[in-house]
Design a protein around this nucleic acid. Structure first.
Lengths: 148, 148
DNA sequence: TTTATAAAAGATGGTTTTATCCTTTATAAA
DNA sequence: TTTATAAAGGATAAAACCATCTTTTATAAA
């Protein structure tokens, strides 16, 4: 559906957003650990997210990654766009180059419903909203079940 | 969303179904040509579909691929299952190993809607239905626009 | 200004997916 | 039975994706 890079990126962004208090900056090691993603690969992905102004980074001592107030309001689809591009929301389900309502593949109508639902899922959800759920403890961004 | 192999497989199956007249058998070269897919790769894919009894093949002269009456009624999801498996309809959108209604990732609810829509698209559509559309000329399985 | 730190950038390796080629097997007609 | 044909099966190659390592750059504190 979406690439692993994109999944890591979304989880990392949500984690960074969930720690948007004070002026706290998070380093790559901690982020990768918290979202169960490979460290070096996650570093590459966060580079891209920084370039697209989805998160912000600062080099040097006391540096790291963080998210600014205005960035919290962005829809998650911005992350998908930065890493995978928008083609998954546009392309034909059967891989045809030309497929549209006026020249459809046999599955066009049914597939479009699913494709649009996917786009809505990412479009209508803000990074802030997801981070709040994580902070509330009502949802999770790693594979560690912590019972206390 | 689904692999290229699976897209080629669905297009090939629809084409074979659309030629389900008399006892006609289609060879791999013709099928690959008609659905704009690489020939050798398509051969591998049709091998799998034959193994899963989604289509039928016969070796030797006057052999080839065809589809039997009972096979026409199968839902397209059988093809997806044969080639890609069912994981795309089950797995977490953010790549978590453990993600469910009771232990959800932050996008679980929204993503599940899209994932279920995709499953429905493939589950509720029979190979026969798609082949009929192609025969009617109301939908297409290749990239060649034929105007006459 | 020097030093330590953390991300950015570049090079490289491994795995999976996509794709092709060659040999073998099954089958039908001559 | 021989021969021609077409799919099956095995080996291999190319591309894309996933992942890591090393060097460079920016920055803040001492």
């Amino acid at each position: 559906m979406i690439s692993k890079a994109c999944q890591y990126g979304i989880r990392a962004a949500i984690y960074i957003a969930s720690r948007h208090n004070d002026g706290i900056k998070l380093n790559i090691k901690q982020i990768a650990c918290e979202v169960d993603a490979p460290e070096a690969f996650t570093a590459k992905i966060l580079q891209v997210l920084n370039k697209y102004h989805i998160i912000t980074s600062l080099k040097g001592p006391y540096g790291g990654f963080f998210i600014e107030e205005f960035q919290l309001e962005q829809p998650v689809i911005n992350i998908v766009n930065a890493i995978d591009g928008m083609s998954v929301f546009k392309e034909c389900g059967l891989g045809l180059k030309q497929c549209s309502a006026s020249h459809p593949c046999p599955m066009h109508d049914q597939y479009k419903i699913a494709r649009d639902a996917l786009q809505n899922a990412f479009q209508q959800t803000s990074i802030r909203h997801l981070a709040m759920q994580v902070n509330e403890g009502s949802s999770f961004i790693n594979n560690l079940v912590l019972k206390n």
